[in-house]
Structures are given as structure tokens and as C-alpha cells.
Nucleic acid binder design. Structure first.
Lengths: 226, 226
DNA sequence: ATCATCCTAAAACAAGTGTCATAAATTATC
DNA sequence: GATAATTTATGACACTTGTTTTAGGATGAT
């Protein structure tokens, strides 16, 4: 289908890897680019360097199984990262700092976006969230991620002056905002907007903390929460 | 493909309509639900009440043509709405009010989400934006929408104390945030979060104005811009 | 070594895909 | 009303899709 550009050694870093994981990375990349329904099992297997075009069926049972596996794969990586960050924050007494907690929630995604020379974590997750129509954001219909759950809980404590549904919605908005920033980040430090990514990140985090913690009515801002 | 529930008179309001527009609405709905690559031309034609399974080819040439037509269709509707709102704001001297301008940019989408008994405008646009990878947001690779362009220009004037790329990125973030709120709104006033939609809307607009106008560094906030 | 388990390869199939060509029906134009 | 233009309905085509089946290879345990 068009796009037959040579593309040899496509993503060299994903060679000599477990076949199952190669499928996960290939799937993430193709799903990110063309949508969850925009890549065939055959394409994915081929991109994973597998002559076996039924590889996905074998390892994951179905397309949905692969999608789920990709999600879980990234989720696991973030759990360990968040665990370390939570410990670190605890020893430094920063568990009540809104900015710190938000960083624990958001920043691990940045590493995933850069890892594996793939640069399609954010796009894939966007496609996934758009497709899955999760009734409640944060409903991880599998194993609950304890560290993320704990961080979210800490964050909700930090903004408990907001009605719960407002807090929930703001958490969603903020997560998506960050995800969108990530999507434009491809590892190199050049940004689509002429600024460096770290600048964009700093501004975004600031804007996000502000947006999250902003009370419902501007008048009664408990500024010590920022 | 599963989901063979009877579904007679599927969306009764789109009957007795121009066939071309019925295709647009059907396409919007299916693309919104299953992604731009998640619906076949045949499905779309069928949902549009057309036995002619080659209808999309005839009217729009290709899938991409249909996608583009859907986008333009909604864009046109918003242009007229925004034109009226701009006139109204001008006569009331509100062209320099950030909240008013943001409403001109965002609110017309609310009507589209409710129109046609379709309730899939927001989802479709999300899918579209995710797929199209527009190099610059606001690059409408066809006819420039003058009213939207004007509103965006007015908004940028309102926050010209921000570096241009920061302003641009915030406009994007804010638009996507609103789009996400819209996605959870299906016409009825019940929200997924237990609050009424108008409440959510009010909070969101407040949060958005705040987030948009927030200066880069919190210290030097020119509060008269809010 | 033998065996079992896991993974990969390859072939085959029915169903669904986009697309083109052509016929029927509808609508507009004179 | 007759004629042209536009739209809708079918039929057919090569190709891709997901999936199953069967065979071959690798790896590890005993």
C-alpha cells in the first residue's frame, strides 16, 4: 500500500530481541501511525522481522490481545519507574507537593516515548484511549497499577477542595494535555514550535499544576496548595 | 461483525436527506467509533441507507476524499456560527474579552456535537487530528476559514505577552481539552462524572481561560488580561 | 541421546476489501 | 414530453484480510 520506501534496518535497535516483544514494539509503532484498525496482522509480523504472518494469533490470540499486551507492557515499565519516584519523594518529604506528584504521574511517560527508538508511545496511547472508550478514565480493565493508583490518590488529596468529579475531569484533561505534548516529541530536542522540548515541558508542567490546582471559583484560591 | 442488533431507523433524522450528506454523516459516525481506518466503504454506504456500495467512490473518489468532506462540512457550519458570534461581539464591544473570544472559538463545536442526532463530531475530529498529523495545528490544507482565523488572531493578541510558540501550544492544548469534554457529551445533560454538562462546561471554560492567559512565569501575571 | 515444549514457517481458505464497469432509475433542462 | 445529466443499483474483478492447519526447527530437560 504505497509507502514502499526501502526502509532497510527499519528500527535497528529492536533486532535481537524476544520475538514477542518485537511484535509488541512493531504493533505499537504501526497502531500509532495508522490507528488501531489501520494495520494488519501481517504488516505487524513483517515489521517485527517475522516471516510467520500468523505470529500475532499465536502469541496474543487476536488483534485485541496484542493491543492489550502493548498497553500492559508500557504500564509495567511505568509502574517500576513510579515506584522509584514515590520512594524518592517519600525520603525527601515531597509527597504533599503537587508538582512532585504530577511529575510522578506524568514524567515516566517521557522516557517511554524516547525508549526503543520507537517514539510512538504517546501516539499509540492516544489511539488506544480514543478507541477503548473506557467508561471511566483510570479503569485499567486488568491488573490495577498500585503505584499509579497511589499517585493519583495523593494528587486527589492535594486538590480535595474541588468536587470529586471536577478533580477527576481535570486529571483527565491534564493527562491528555501532557500526552499531546509528548506526541510532538520525537527524542531530538527540536520542537515543532521553535522552542526546545525542555522549555515546552517546563511551561507545560507549570501550566498543568496551575490548571489542576485552580479552584473552581477564582475568588477563593487557597494559594498555599500551589 | 458482531453488533447485528436490529437498529432499525438507525438515526431517523438523517432520512430524507441528500445522499451525499447522508454519506458524510454516516462516515462521521463510523469513523468516530472505529477510527478512520476502522470502517469500510460498504459499511458507510449501508449506514447511509444506500444499496450502492460504491457510493463513496462516486461522490468523493476515495476514503480520504470522504474524510476531507466530513471535515469541511463541519468547518463550514462552524464558519457561519462564528461569523454571527463575531458580529455580535463587535456590536457589544466584547472583541477584546478573552472569555468571549474563546467562546467563539470553542462553543460552536458544542452545537455540532448535538446536531444531526449524530453525537460523534468530537470523536471524529479527534480521530482525524490524530491521523492527519498536521505539521502545524491550524493548517487547514484547503480553504482557510476566515472567521476562525480572525478569532484565533484576536486570541493571540490577547495573550501577546507570551512567546508565540507558547501561545500556539496553549491554544492547541485548550482546543483539545475542550474537544475531550465534548466527546463525553452526548446531548442529554447527564455526564459521566455525575455533574450536569453545563456545570462541567462552566468549570472547563473557566479553567481554560485561566490556563490560556496564565503568563509563562507565575510571578509576573498581568491580571488585567484575565 | 530422546523426548517434549516452544517457536517459526508456510500453505490454504472463506470472507471482506477497494475499485471499475455497466445498467437502471431518478432528476433536471430545454 | 423528449433528452441529457446526475444519481443509484448491481455485478464482477483482483487483492487483502483474519484465522486455521500442518509441517519444520530450535531449545531445554531428563
Amino acid at each position: 500500500m504505497a509507502n514502499i520506501i526501502v526502509e532497510t534496518a527499519e528500527t535497528p535497535s529492536i533486532d535481537n530481541l524476544d520475538g514477542k516483544i518485537r511484535l509488541i514494539l512493531a504493533g505499537e509503532q504501526l497502531f500509532a501511525k495508522n490507528g488501531i484498525n489501520g494495520a494488519s496482522m501481517r504488516e505487524i509480523a513483517t515489521k517485527a522481522g517475522q516471516g510467520n504472518h500468523a505470529a500475532v494469533q499465536y502469541h496474543f490470540g487476536s488483534r485485541e490481545g496484542l493491543v492489550r499486551a502493548i498497553f500492559d507492557y508500557r504500564m509495567d515499565q511505568m509502574e517500576t519507574a513510579r515506584g522509584a519516584m514515590l520512594d524518592n519523594a517519600q525520603t525527601h518529604g515531597r509527597l504533599k507537593d503537587a508538582r512532585t506528584i504530577l511529575e510522578i504521574i506524568l514524567l515516566p511517560q517521557l522516557d517511554l516515548q524516547d525508549a526503543d527508538g520507537n517514539h510512538s508511545y504517546a501516539s499509540f496511547l492516544s489511539q488506544y484511549l480514543l478507541q477503548s472508550r473506557s467508561p471511566e478514565f483510570g479503569d485499567f480493565s486488568g491488573s490495577e497499577p498500585p503505584n499509579l493508583t497511589r499517585a493519583l490518590h495523593l494528587m486527589r488529596e492535594r486538590i480535595d477542595y474541588l468536587p470529586p468529579f471536577v478533580a477527576q475531569r481535570r486529571l483527565i484533561s491534564v493527562s491528555l494535555m501532557f500526552l499531546n505534548i509528548l506526541m510532538r516529541h520525537h527524542g531530538t530536542d527540536e520542537s515543532a514550535f521553535g522552542e526546545t522540548f525542555s522549555e515546552a515541558l517546563e511551561d507545560t508542567m507549570e501550566q498543568i499544576v496551575e490548571g489542576m490546582c485552580m479552584p473552581l471559583r477564582l475568588a477563593s484560591a487557597p494559594s498555599e496548595n500551589l
